[in-house]
Simulated scan of single mutants.
Amino acid sequence: MQANGHPNFLQEKLPGVTFAPVFCSRALSVDDAARPHLGSLCFIHAESLTQWAEKAMSVIRELWVNFPGTGNLDWRNYAATKISEEGISYTNIFSFLTSTKIQDIPS
């Protein structure tokens, strides 16, 4: 399956980097015939991704409106705290996108 092949290729080129392919769909089930090809793919429902993106954009807009200009350490600390509290940091994003394995989706 192509979605599993890309991380394998990238892992060879960039050892030590973690890759997690994520399949985004509006589907609510997986055909049994596809299961042997799914490997370790993660799954995110399109609506969940849309809701997360809307929340993330709302936070980014708020940060932008309050941006006083470059070099302001108080704003940088505020932005880092806000991003972490709202769950849109890199680690939060990775956890969100990889929390569901496609194998766990019902038939």
Results as ranks from 00 to 15, higher is better:
69 G>E: 01
6 H>W: 15
45 H>G: 07
77 N>D: 12
73 L>Y: 06
27 A>H: 13
5 G>M: 10
90 Y>W: 11
70 T>W: 12
48 S>Q: 06
89 S>I: 09
92 N>Y: 09
90 Y>S: 08
78 Y>H: 07
67 F>W: 11
49 L>V: 10
84 S>T: 12
92 N>I: 06
93 I>F: 08
15 P>L: 08
87 G>W: 03
44 I>F: 08
82 K>D: 05
12 E>H: 15
77 N>T: 13
8 N>Y: 08
19 F>K: 03
42 C>L: 00
41 L>E: 00
28 L>H: 11
50 T>H: 13
41 L>K: 00
103 Q>N: 15
37 H>P: 12
106 P>R: 10
58 S>P: 03
37 H>G: 14
54 E>H: 14
42 C>Q: 00
93 I>N: 01
18 T>C: 04
55 K>L: 08
86 E>H: 10
92 N>E: 09
6 H>C: 15
60 I>Y: 03
106 P>H: 08
91 T>L: 02
21 P>D: 00
60 I>M: 02
52 W>L: 02
61 R>Y: 12
71 G>F: 08
34 A>T: 12
16 G>H: 04
5 G>N: 11
92 N>L: 05
15 P>H: 09
17 V>W: 00
27 A>C: 15
58 S>K: 10
64 W>G: 06
80 A>L: 11
104 D>I: 06
80 A>E: 13
54 E>T: 15
66 N>I: 05
15 P>D: 06
20 A>P: 14
89 S>Y: 10
36 P>M: 03
99 S>F: 07
4 N>S: 15
51 Q>K: 15
38 L>Y: 01
14 L>I: 12
24 C>R: 01
8 N>E: 12
68 P>E: 04
70 T>S: 10
59 V>G: 02
52 W>M: 02
101 K>M: 11
84 S>K: 12
42 C>D: 00
22 V>C: 00
67 F>M: 04
57 M>Y: 09
5 G>F: 07
98 T>E: 04
27 A>S: 15
38 L>E: 01
72 N>H: 04
33 A>D: 15
107 S>C: 09
54 E>M: 11
37 H>I: 09
44 I>T: 12
89 S>G: 12
46 A>Q: 03
71 G>N: 08
65 V>H: 07
43 F>G: 01
17 V>K: 02
53 A>R: 14
12 E>D: 13
17 V>S: 01
43 F>A: 01
86 E>S: 09
92 N>D: 14
11 Q>V: 08
99 S>R: 13
103 Q>K: 09
85 E>C: 04
71 G>W: 10
67 F>L: 04
81 T>G: 04
24 C>L: 10
41 L>N: 00
14 L>P: 04
65 V>C: 03
69 G>Q: 01
89 S>D: 14
39 G>M: 03
48 S>D: 05
90 Y>I: 11
48 S>P: 03
41 L>Q: 00
67 F>Q: 05
50 T>A: 15
103 Q>W: 06
66 N>G: 09
7 P>V: 03
60 I>Q: 01
53 A>E: 05
72 N>V: 08
82 K>H: 11
51 Q>M: 14
60 I>R: 01
8 N>G: 10
23 F>N: 03
11 Q>P: 07
75 W>G: 01
45 H>E: 02
96 F>Q: 02
84 S>C: 07
67 F>H: 11
56 A>F: 05
36 P>K: 01
27 A>M: 13
69 G>T: 06
